[in-house]
Design a protein around this nucleic acid. Structure first.
Lengths: 195, 195
DNA sequence: CTATGAATTGAACGGATGTTCAGATATGCA
DNA sequence: TGCATATCTGAACATCCGTTCAATTCATAG
């Protein structure tokens, strides 16, 4: 067997990402220091630089991985035929995927302004790619007559804002189950697009 | 004439708030230093403490004033009679008011976690008060049969998220006029609530 | 013009920041 | 066992942070 790099049973790398995600989500990127992250992992600050070239890249990697995960998961799911069913699939997927990783979602939305310009552009492309997935569903439905939309781009932005907004108030074990929330939101979305 | 306090033609106070708002909106509270704000105003850092007891209070005041302005402006506008007209009034008001002060809106949404606990609670009360204004419209419309809503609280959160989302993409001089955006969003909201 | 008090400076305080690196430690393979 | 290398420490670097305050400048009232 070829010698593996990092053949020690080292898991510090993932721990660093997890601690950084937790801390940045709760305090904000600028307010979290490398020493805080290191303390959470149980190492000294200098050791973090074995796993990231700098603090900025750590943030960028968290956001990029979140969006790549979002796109990959969406892309690997089978697509229904009819626009109406595609819309249902998207709504439920979006709520479910976002509620399952609130910290990553929070960071991806709140820390955009802390990205260096090149990193910002890369993240914006990924986000736009995801938005286009919904927009193409709406466009197809509008064309087929299943939906009635004065402006598909605005409907796209409106629906994504609405669905992502669930993350700001939903609490597991609250008044409504996640399935019920999904159904109620889907119902509102359906009516909003004239389905 | 009684001697006025600050009878010098001093406008530094408002300038401090304006500079702080501009800088915090673009870089984030934790990333902006008192020295940066002072430089923007054209004074030394120490002078800022004539206008705010500390950095935390400066943030709190910005957010509180934004929400008090929102509630006061909303409260002073005449209310239509029918729920359907009230909903139209709210949608147009919300989009217009928020698009007119994007920096204050941005700060009020993004910097909540940088508030000290007491300040956070105070801001949350103001925000909830505003949400209740929409919720009572929806409740009245649901009762009167003008709207058909499975859950007024969820509809409230969904609509506010949708409307506030305009701030993330709207650009003056873009493809659509503000009035057209207001109309399209109102149309989607009306359908979403079953009006 | 002078006295008064508001407005501001500029230096200083202790401490935190991201990052680097020589040296120490731990691990797995020969 | 001994060697190579991955992992980590702990101190150091220059710089920035929020905040305080004695000293100074400034504008106005009398």
């Amino acid at each position: 067997m070829a010698r593996k790099i990092g053949s020690h049973s080292n898991i510090t790398g993932p721990l660093v990402r997890a601690a950084a995600q937790r801390l940045i989500a709760s305090q904000g990127f600028a307010a979290v220091s490398m020493r805080q992250i290191a303390a959470e992992v149980g190492v000294q600050a200098g050791a973090l630089y074995l796993y990231t070239p700098d603090k900025q890249t750590l943030l960028f990697d968290l956001m990029r991985e979140h969006l790549e995960d979002l796109l990959a998961t969406w892309g690997s799911a089978p697509k229904p035929d009819l626009p109406s069913n595609q819309l249902e699939h998207f709504c439920k997927f979006h709520i479910r995927h976002h509620l399952a990783r609130p910290e990553a979602v929070f960071i991806a939305y709140m820390e955009l302004r802390n990205l260096a310009p090149d990193n910002f552009r890369a993240i914006e492309i990924l986000r736009h790619t995801y938005e286009d997935e919904l927009e193409s569903i709406l466009r197809a439905g509008d064309k087929s007559g299943d939906f009635k939309l004065p402006d598909t781009r605005l409907a796209t932005m409106a629906i994504i804002a609405m669905l992502t907004g669930v993350n700001t108030w939903y609490q597991k074990g609250g008044r409504l189950s996640q399935e019920r929330v999904e159904r109620i939101y889907l119902n509102m979305v359906r009516r909003a697009v004239g389905a």
